[in-house]
Design a protein around this nucleic acid. Structure first.
Lengths: 225, 225
DNA sequence: ATTAATCGATAGTAATACTTTTATATTTGC
DNA sequence: GCAAATATAAAAGTATTACTATCGATTAAT
């Protein structure tokens, strides 16, 4: 997979940017260092001005790529889920046993991201951390319905639907496959957050992973054929 | 319960305010109308200046009660979880059967808030909506560890622990009671959000409630004695 | 009646979230 | 190799936010 990943380009909804950041060095710089700076400062304290200083560029130049930092976050999130989707499809492809397939899918979705694909300007380990800490802020906004109409959440929705289908493939009688799927996706981010900041609110720790918790939860819940 | 609720005062961590809003008319006004205004504008667009206009008071007067809007949100959240905790303890008290007890607890925790207790200046229906839409923003901040040390999340943590204990009372062998409890709490808010804004990502709708989904999930997961 | 606390009004500061303009590079098309 | 087009940097400007400080006026407590 490694070599394949190096040449992979994750497509992102064109409405999320003004100018495609993949189309120039400055654009790639913006992506690369916005990830690092958001991780460092938190999304709330992150500004285009600070990013400009960090990449020796100008605030106004960044505004030519992204309308505002909210759109940038949506861009990063879309990239992230596109990347997860790719890995999920890739690694479940060819597995015939629905149980093993679902297991693999949940594994990819809920696993901790541990190494980044060096070549690309996107550091997936840090991006994963941003998603855990900031993703909710991208949709917990008043404009969510309009943004949904603009398909900003399409990739994420497709991912949940894929998982839902795999759940139904294991137990077609289970009445809440989509809720279970969305619960695993969101809940996994939450368990990672708890593990880091509220260890007394989760059983996940250095030995028990969120993946184990959710695999266990899903297979206790479903009636296997 | 109604009558009891009318005289109930939910205690909130003193570090969350500068002056206790329960101690004056202005304070109560701030609470009452901040709930309505945050609901109307969303937390991100809500400011003390706008609140001042709404209650015919001054920005600087509001700053005498709360350091900033983040602390106000923490105050409202603490109040909310305190209120849920009270109702949970009250309505599970005296139930001996662990299964029925857990069922009742999950019901209170995940149920839609439908009527408010008229007397108090807190509109619980609207507050519930705020918690669904904005609660994550209260802890997804860089300062979370310090704020946790200041016990800002104590009530919420106590609630999760209560639920966790009830889970273990039904199935003491289940290895992830705290994770399941925190998952239900957070997940319930999320399912309500999805129901409202991303109906294709949840099986919850006008006939199926998040409560049904979570009760079902929990009892499929646990081995009952 | 005096003092203390509370509140409203005003003003001020620094930072944010942009927009606009202009000058300077850099690229590319011929 | 040069002109034209395009991209970027720098600077300045605006409106809003998130406060802080000051100062009377009102109200409440003793």
């Amino acid at each position: 997979m490694d070599v394949l990943m190096q040449s992979l380009k994750i497509g992102v909804n064109e409405k999320l940017y003004i100018k495609d950041p993949e189309s120039s060095t400055l654009g790639k710089n913006i992506i690369e260092h916005s990830i690092l700076l958001i991780d460092e400062l938190g999304f709330d304290s992150f500004t285009f001005k600070k990013l400009g200083v960090k990449i020796n560029s100008n605030e106004s130049s960044i505004y030519r790529y992204f309308e505002n930092k909210h759109k940038l976050l949506l861009y990063l999130a879309t990239w992230y889920w596109g990347w997860v989707e790719y890995r999920m499809v890739f690694s479940t492809n060819g597995i015939d046993d629905p149980i093993k397939k679902l297991e693999k899918a949940v594994e990819v979705l809920t696993q901790n991201v541990e190494e980044d694909s060096t070549i690309s300007h996107v550091n997936e380990v840090v991006l994963n951390r941003i998603i855990i800490n900031e993703y909710s802020k991208s949709y917990l906004v008043k404009e969510v319905n309009q943004e949904d109409k603009d398909s900003f959440f399409m990739v994420c929705k497709r991912l949940v639907n894929r998982l839902s289908d795999m759940i139904s493939a294991v137990d077609e009688e289970y009445p809440y496959p989509i809720s279970l799927a969305s619960n695993v996706m969101e809940g996994s981010l939450h368990q990672y957050f708890l593990k880091e900041h509220f260890p007394t609110l989760t059983n996940c720790n250095s030995t028990i992973t969120p993946t184990e918790f959710f695999i266990d939860l899903i297979f206790r819940t479903l009636n296997k054929k």
